[in-house]
């Protein structure tokens, strides 16, 4: 099947490893946290404060704050803006991200 990487003829550098809740995930230089998670088949990485509902990417451009995630113990990072870096410890965020 054709992929966006094929379409743009992208040749990123070698993949590196990040973790999502301790599970190893492959990411490429230039990918945001959100892109790495989508590529791993993950579409939600936060639960809401009131109802505990799952959320992921919505606006994709940093306006809506739906894609908040904890990266290296810093909660409330917008996954659509933050680049993935080798060794990042990404954690799904429950509520405000300040309770755990």
């Amino acid at each position: 099947m054709r992929t966006p990487v094929d379409l743009a003829a992208a040749r990123p550098g070698p993949a590196f490893t990040v973790t999502l809740d301790g599970r190893e995930i492959e990411a490429f230089p230039g990918q945001t946290v959100a892109a790495a998670l989508w590529a791993a088949g993950v579409t939600s990485w936060r639960t809401t404060r009131v109802e505990g509902r799952p959320r992921g990417i919505f606006c994709g451009i940093g306006v809506c704050f739906d894609c908040l995630v904890t990266v290296n113990d810093r909660p409330n990072q917008r996954a659509c803006l933050v680049p993935a870096r080798p060794g990042d410890a990404i954690r799904t965020q429950d509520g405000t991200g300040h309770d755990d």
Partner: peptide, 12 residues
């Protein structure tokens, strides 16, 4: 626009 931004910017 978000689907397009993720596609154009992150190839995702």
């Amino acid at each position: 626009g978000g689907a397009q931004a993720m596609l154009k910017g992150a190839l995702a």
